[in-house]
Computed example of a mutant assay.
Amino acid sequence: MPLHVPPAPAPALRTVLTALGSPTAVKEARTPSLLHAQGPATPELPLPVHVLDGIDTSGVPITRLTGWRFLIRCADRAVAAAETMLTPDGWAFSHFFEGPYIGSTERALRQAETMPQPYQPRLLSVPGLYMLTLWLHGDCDADGATGHPAATDLLVPLAPAPPGIAAHRPHRVSELLPVLTHRVTPAPLLKAPA
Results as ranks from 00 to 15, higher is better:
Leu134Cys: 02
Val79Glu: 14
Thr133His: 13
Glu28Lys: 08
Ile102Leu: 09
Gly164Asn: 07
His137Cys: 07
Val5His: 11
Ala159Ser: 15
Asp141Leu: 10
Thr63Phe: 13
Asp53Leu: 15
Ala75His: 15
Thr105Asp: 07
His36Val: 01
Ala29Tyr: 01
Thr133Val: 13
Tyr101Trp: 10
Ser22Asp: 15
Leu47Tyr: 02
Arg169Cys: 04
Pro162Met: 08
Ala108Gln: 07
Ala194Lys: 14
Cys140Ile: 15
Val79Ile: 14
Phe93Leu: 09
Asp76Gln: 14
Pro9Tyr: 00
Leu154Trp: 09
Arg64Ser: 01
Gly147Leu: 04
Leu136Gly: 05
Thr31Cys: 09
Gln117Val: 12
Ala192Arg: 13
Tyr130Glu: 12
Pro186Cys: 10
Thr24Cys: 02
Arg169Asn: 03
Ala81Pro: 01
Asp56Gln: 07
Pro48Ile: 04
Ala187Ser: 10
Ala151Gly: 08
Ala187Phe: 04
Ala145Tyr: 00
Glu106Ile: 08
Leu52Arg: 08
Phe93Met: 14
Gly67Trp: 00
His171Glu: 10
Thr185Cys: 10
His36Ser: 04
Pro2Met: 00
Cys140Tyr: 00
Ser104Glu: 07
Ala8Thr: 02
Leu129Pro: 03
Arg169Ile: 14
Pro188Ala: 09
Gly164Glu: 03
Gln111Cys: 01
Ala8Lys: 01
Leu176Pro: 05
Pro186Thr: 01
Arg30Cys: 12
Pro178Arg: 10
Glu113Val: 07
Gly147Cys: 07
Leu132His: 05
Pro32Trp: 02
Pro48Phe: 00
Asp141Cys: 07
Met131Ile: 08
Pro32Thr: 05
Asp143Cys: 08
Pro2Gln: 06
Pro178Cys: 12
Leu34Pro: 05
Leu136Trp: 13
Gly67Val: 00
Pro149Val: 11
Trp91Asn: 05
Gln117Phe: 07
Ala150Pro: 06
Asp53Trp: 08
Gly164Pro: 06
Pro11Cys: 02
Pro157Asp: 02
Ser33Trp: 01
His171Ile: 05
